[in-house]
Write a protein that binds this DNA or RNA. Structure first.
Length: 892
RNA sequence: GGGCGCUUAGCUCAGUUGGUUUAGAGCGACUGGUUUACACCCAGUAGGCCGGGGGUUCGACUCCCUCAGCGCCCACCA
């Protein structure tokens, strides 16, 4: 075997062997009793895998490999997302950089072709990166959110919802991003604190006497005002409610209305209402039946409703209006003010709420059968799913987050004005060509209007929010070809064989940051279209941060590229760096030292295997026989049994990190540092070593598939046909029904402790191994004497002493110290520092005394004796005895 | 304003339902070591009133309350 695991040489080769061997395809798994399925959250086709993807893939692949080894037929389905806005923005940016042109310099179809070219290239990169992580997904079933099958499905679901009245078209005030030139959903809006000015404007009463002063940060919107609102409880304004004011600059009459939403304590307590250009004003406007007066064009400039200001935009417009307002003595005062501005979560541009005609999904219209048979809305059904634990969220605290978001959900605006994406499958019968204006929603383009027969049909130019299609992902990804996408009875999509077996999926693994964007949407869409939940479990991972806890970002340059780490330290070390210390729902800090640290462990594992293979070459895999077992064999077998139980339990409970920690601890400490060291002294351990190590390889495999697979192949008999580790069964405790006395394991701990204590003292006084030191040991019972005597060679060798006596009455030296089952007295080496020893002894005595005192206090406490369980009290009594004995013996 | 999380060794974190913990690991620091896998190693040392206070309990790092600091999400007062 090579000196170290040469991951650069083998990783690709091993991955190919898995893939070509068909191990990723569940159809090749025979005789399975259970099923496990996970659909990969599709990375955007836009670019490179980042550390977040890396951790996602590591966790998912761990689950998939583990499930397979436990005999579950496992589907891990990969895919990519067309990511409408993100992709289009990226292509537009590149285009501008390369040619100086914008998308509007091209016909729509030509531009889309450029997007597709970009995607083809980008997809390849992502495929490669996913493979390099060792991801064991079934490539034969890869899906893409915008391929033919998914396109048909998206249209089908759209039509279902439209026919049900869940999708409707409406004139609404929505968030408009001038940067993306598109609408955004409410939760795609972010807020940023910004310094601004608060302008106080006087609106004269129409009656001619008096005025109302309103405060605003955007005086330019005043031309769209259709009311002034005051709080009905505000005494200052009560008598003005129902009267009218004259809107300055235009002299339009607008009413003064009563609205409890208005905060009397803010500004002047009077709020100008601009329903067309403010989300809250819009709600108030609808409530009071106010005119929605849109004064902006799509590019942000004023339209004809702004009268003489038409066409103006930006700072110049603001200046003109302020000057005019000033001249008419409308502008009362200006204050500095800090408030939050709504910005686009993708491009950061300040949003302009505008009113326009958009498509929406109603989340509160009742069209679905709930769990109790009643008609419920999408929102109610989605709440039910989590409340009734059809879906289990890990960690559980996100239940609360999910509920509060779902409870506050408004109708979802799904139309976008960008070009790239699923185009809305709605056709209009063109009025200008003698049509009737009917809207038809169909999967395929209708030949003619189904009402008037007109053949001039025009398709809606809008595209769908990217979350609409990804909201169908768990089931849409399972369709294999367009023909399978069919509407069945009762408004449910017909399941294909794959879905019958694997849907709902076992677990959805994703970041908590897209709980709303994506996870919640999937629940809405799936409970509607499939009438079942999309998944049984949601495992939410945290965000990946840098060493200082900052988010990783390109602009900060603090990102760690997982592929870089793979190239430097190997995919296995990279996976460990992303898996260990990573707990559900909590952010993970990563930095290069972490990965280099784990690469050391990979080397350690490699070396252990080298040792075992060299020593156990000719040993068969026959079962371990109890009659030849020595005390340390019992010890290691007991520990191994416990380990296999704990690892399985922890993996079952999604505690991946803890399972890995335990494995690492056992591998390095119990196995390498103790058992292997002892095996060099006490021969005949080949069978056990091999048995345990093979089990360990299996348990390690889901964490670090490459190196374990390689080592596994080294164990294979060259003459026998090779089997792959990834297809092995998950190991049991390796004992084949044989009993291991737990007391034996416990007892052996005394031996380990004795060795450790002797080493410690020797180290402390700089006593070298060759010094020929002898000790006398005084123990508390004959059993221990016997055990220690039987381990003579091992103890001597490991602790580096020449020999010992076991004699209760012997008084040899001043250098005495305790171990768990007794006291050791060490011969004095020449030139020994007596004072130092006394101090050490004193320290030990103090420590034991403190423990003793605490122990005594506990036992003197009557309620403790009365109320604590018997075993605990008994344990405490034993502890006291041991401590007393030890103290006695230590006293000079 | 509403909600959630974090605070344990110099740093990064474990500690799963309160008692096998006499609080652990890795990194870093320090001491010593080439003993037929491994110097990407081995043996060992130092370092912590488990953020402060109160409570429940026989018993609290663990449960409850409260305060403080940090972070996140949602709402957004114009």
């Amino acid at each position: 075997m090579e000196k170290r695991f040469n991951f650069l040489k083998y990783e690709e080769e091993i991955y190919k062997a898995w893939e070509q061997g068909g191990y990723f395809n569940p159809d090749n798994q025979k005789n399975c009793r259970a099923v496990f399925s996970i659909v990969m959250p599709p990375p955007n086709v836009t670019g490179n895998l980042h550390a977040g993807h890396g951790s996602m893939l590591a966790i998912e692949d761990l689950m998939a490999r583990w499930a397979r080894m436990r005999g579950k037929q496992t589907l891990y389905l990969p895919g990519t997302d067309h990511a409408a806005i993100a992709t289009q923005t990226k292509v537009e940016k590149d285009l501008l950089k390369r040619t100086g042109k914008t998308r509007h310099d091209f016909p729509r179809e030509k531009f889309l072709k450029l997007v597709l070219e970009f995607i083809d290239k980008s997809k390849e990169t992502i495929h490669k990166q996913i493979r390099r992580m060792g991801t064991s997904c079934d490539w034969s079933r890869e899906a893409y959110t915008m391929d033919e099958t998914r396109t048909k499905l998206v249209r089908m679901v759209f039509k279902m919802m439209f026919d049900n009245g869940l999708i409707y078209r409406g004139e609404r005030t929505v968030n408009w991003c001038p940067g993306c030139a598109s609408t955004l959903a409410d939760d795609e809006v972010e807020y940023k604190k910004e310094k601004a000015r608060l302008y106080y404007l006087n609106y004269p009463l129409a009656s001619g006497k008096g005025k109302i002063t309103v405060a605003t940060t955007r005086p330019q919107t005043m031309l769209g005002d259709t009311a002034v609102a005051v709080n009905p409880k505000d005494k200052r304004y009560q008598k003005l409610i129902g009267k009218e004011v004259l809107l300055p600059l235009t002299q339009r009459r607008i009413p003064v209305i009563a609205e409890p939403y208005v905060d009397s304590g803010f500004g002047t307590g009077a709020l100008k209402i601009t329903p067309a250009h403010d989300m809250n004003d819009y709600r108030i406007g609808i409530k009071h039946g106010l005119e929605i007066r849109n004064i902006f064009n799509k590019d942000g400039s004023f339209n004809q409703k702004a009268g003489k200001y038409q066409g103006l935009k930006g700072g110049e417009r603001l200046k003109r209006i302020l000057v005019d307002l000033g001249n008419q003595k409308v502008l009362e005062k200006i204050e500095d003010y800090e408030h939050s501005v709504s910005i686009c979560y993708r491009c950061g541009t300040a949003l302009e709420p505008i009113t326009s005609r958009q498509w929406f999904i109603s989340v509160s219209k009742k069209t679905l059968r709930g769990r109790k048979g009643k008609l419920v809305s999408l929102k109610q059904r989605a709440l039910e799913a989590v409340r009734d634990r059809e879906i289990n969220i890990i960690p559980a605290r996100f239940n609360k987050t999910y509920n509060s978001w779902m409870n506050n959900l408004y109708d979802w605006c799904i139309s976008r004005q960008i070009w790239f994406g699923h185009r809305i499958p709605a056709w209009y019968c063109k009025k200008k060509n003698n049509g009737c204006g009917r809207i038809m929603v169909e999967v395929d383009k209708p030949k003619k209007c189904d009402k008037c027969g007109n053949k001039r049909l025009v398709r809606d130019s809008n595209t769908l929010d990217t979350w609409f299609s990804s909201g169908t992902w768990t089931f849409s990804a399972l369709y294999q070809k367009p023909e399978e996408v069919r509407l069945g009875q009762d408004n449910v999509l017909v399941k294909n064989n794959l879905q019958k077996k694997y849907h709902p999926t076992t677990v959805l693994e994703t970041g908590y940051d897209i709980l709303f964007f994506w996870v919640a949407r999937m629940i809405l869409m799936t409970t509607y279209a499939m009438k079942e939940v999309p998944f049984r479990n949601i495992y939410l991972h945290g965000l990946i941060r840098d060493k200082l806890g900052r988010k990783m970002s390109k602009s900060k340059g603090n990102g760690i590229d997982p592929v870089d780490m793979i190239e430097k330290y190997g995919a296995d070390a990279t996976r460990l760096g992303l898996l260990l210390g990573n707990t559900p729902g909590n952010d993970l800090r990563i930095y290069e030292e972490k990965f280099s640290g784990f690469s050391k462990f990979i080397t350690k594992l490699w070396n252990i295997s080298k040792f075992i293979i060299e020593n156990a070459k000719n040993d068969s895999d026959s079962p371990v026989k109890s009659q030849v077992l020595t005390p340390i064999d019992y010890y290691i077998l007991g520990r191994y049994k416990k380990l296999s139980r704990e690892v399985t339990e922890n993996l079952d409970n999604f505690n991946f990190s803890l399972a890995g920690e335990k494995l690492k601890d056992f591998t390095w400490n119990d196995l390498a540092d103790w058992y292997i060291e002892v095996s060099k002294i006490e021969p005949g351990k080949e069978k056990i070593l091999k048995m345990i190590f093979k089990g360990l390889l299996k348990m390690w495999h889901p964490f670090i598939p490459f190196v374990t697979e390689k080592i596994w192949s080294e164990f294979q008999d060259k003459n026998v046909k090779k089997s792959m580790l990834m297809a092995e069964q998950w190991p049991g405790d390796g004992l084949r029904g044989q009993r291991i006395d737990p007391a034996a394991e416990k007892q052996y701990e005394a031996v380990i402790d004795l060795v450790k204590k002797i080493r410690k003292v020797k180290n402390l006084y700089n006593i070298s191994t060759g010094a020929g030191i002898k000790v006398n040991i005084k123990t508390q019972d004959k059993k221990t004497d016997k055990l220690i005597e039987s381990q003579r060679h091992i103890i001597q060798k490991l602790s580096g002493i020449e020999g010992w006596t076991i004699d209760k009455n012997k008084k040899t030296g001043l250098l005495s110290f305790a171990f768990t089952k007794g006291v050791v007295e060490m011969e004095l080496p020449r030139g020994f520092d007596l004072d130092g020893q006394k101090k050490l002894l004193q320290k030990e005595i103090e420590r034991l005394k403190n423990l003793l005192r605490a122990c005594e206090a506990k036992l003197e406490n009557r309620s403790f004796i009365k109320r604590a369980p018997k075993e605990i009290v008994e344990k405490e009594r034993q502890k006291l005895k041991t401590l007393e004995k030890k103290l006695q013996e230590l006293k000079p």
